[in-house]
Amino acid sequence: MPTMVADNISSGYGKNLIIRNISLEVDAKKVTTIVGPNGAGKSTFAKTVVGLLKAQTGSIVVNGDDLTKVPAYKIPGRGLAYVPQVQNVFVSMTVQENLEIGGFVTKGNTHDRMEEILATFKDLEKARHKRAGFLSGGQQNMLAIARALMVNPSVIVLDEPTAGLSPAYTNVVWEEIGRIAESGTAVLVVEQNVERAIVHSDYVHVFVAGQNHVHGTKEEIAQLDLASIFLGRSEATKS
């Protein structure tokens, strides 16, 4: 059974529907990516899954647990963690405090979990008492991911975790994403760069104009002429 099943999701801002009838599954130990042109509704979908936007239709189920109507603040405690595309750290708080916040929803001692996470995120360990606003963009994204991991989630949703990062740091982040999946977590990543998405993920969804236009394994998606799909033409295989 997939770890997360989003079924027939439609949502948007106010009365405006941005995404329509999107269905998608995320499996444990797998990296699933969503690619698509600017404004395709990738972030809107991610925000709906984690309860920031209300789903007008459809359902979100994690580990058999229906989260569709669950308030956003209870979602991480139910196994679904989220890293937003922008403003994803508490800039006025230290690295350690950011991680503590991430661990508040789990009962009991989170100290061990924090040490475990800091042991894998070496850069953060060094900057432990620095305020997050003083970290580089890449370090901030790493901190945001580390914060989300504090709850030991079943599913983690990452919205463009490498946007604006240097190529070197982009690789570091993708390696980390790979490790997270290996550890048993189901990973859903929104990614702008199609080539990179295909290299690093197991399964790819292509969103165009608010719909899940085409999806498949990375090998299947690699066969498609994505450039014309992005421009709204129907899918054609690469010639």
Partner: peptide
């Protein structure tokens, strides 16, 4: 814990929400 939650909320409300703060 309460004080840190208050600071988190003041820093970034929507991130506080998705980090599990009521």
């Amino acid at each position: 814990r309460l004080g840190k939650m208050m600071r988190a909320l003041s820093d970034n409300t929507s991130l506080a929400l998705t980090s599990g703060i009521d």
